[in-house]
Design a protein around this nucleic acid. Sequence first.
DNA 1: ATTCAATCGTTAAGTATTTAACTATTGAAC
DNA 2: GTTCAATAGTTAAATACTTAACGATTGAAT
Lengths: 161, 161
Amino acid sequence: MPVQDNSAAPVLRDDFPESASRAAMVAVLRGYGTLQRLMEPYFAGFDLTPPQFQLLTIANRFGDAPPTQRRLARELYVSFPNVTLLLKRLERKGLVERRGNPADRREKYVQLTASGRRLLKRIWLVHQQQMDLVMKGLTVPERKELAKLLSKMTAAHRRVD
Amino acid sequence: MPVQDNSAAPVLRDDFPESASRAAMVAVLRGYGTLQRLMEPYFAGFDLTPPQFQLLTIANRFGDAPPTQRRLARELYVSFPNVTLLLKRLERKGLVERRGNPADRREKYVQLTASGRRLLKRIWLVHQQQMDLVMKGLTVPERKELAKLLSKMTAAHRRVD
DNA sequence: ATTCAATCGTTAAGTATTTAACTATTGAAC
DNA sequence: GTTCAATAGTTAAATACTTAACGATTGAAT
């Protein structure tokens, strides 16, 4: 039996009043959740997770001047140890390889294997379609407006790098 | 010395053409990341994580008709085992307690402790301010527009529940 | 040449999340 | 009344993420 005296308390108490900030924040969180729920099974069809796809995509962009793990972490906006772990799994699947830099034996270059590049190509065949599906609720101008607003929100917290 | 030097910056090949869908998706992901990076240290100041705060908030709304763990999972849009683990940590901190339902011994009711309620009240004192900070890059009408667009995007994938 | 601080990557420990497999309880069909 | 399927919660195994601590390598100051 609660000692707390809420004999005359309303059933559902809210935390704080509605506000435009709160509505926007909640919307971003929900929107992200929706995105995740749509993309996870999609990538699972390629035996990948969203972060793994992201890493492959970024690493691939470097072409034949492969990035170090540190560089990769910065591009991905994740911590250095996280890259180590992601790479371990991608290496196990044979999609990337780490090659030591002989000129500086602390560094390791990250490169997609032929298999990794083939997988990416296979995904690209249907990827635009998948992204359009995710955004199907919005018209094209609305998609642009959404991107613009979110970029503006983000820009206000741009880190110095 | 790193062999790679920015003087001969690698040509970055992109994966697929720009599109409004892609721009919007990337913006949502970045926006969420920004939110996370702002909210994590903020909640850490209260010795909480964002999911833990979310759970406390939702559980608190039920007042003296506490939800079962299952109900809580549905409200939070997370899996049942996840709630078990979140509660274990919150219970360890003395912020919530689980009380078995004598009428159905499978169920457990989740209730905030006095300490948990005090913590929430303490957060509310500054929470609006923190949310305004997160959204400081946008005007109030822009915040509303952002929420509207994201809701529309999400609504197109509304699950049947 | 030796030392020493900075840099690169990894390991350790902890949180958050999932699905699948498990236990306990319930209630209803027989 | 016994059986049995459904329900509530937990445990197991995996991925993803963090910070802190650690090992190896480098380069530069002495």
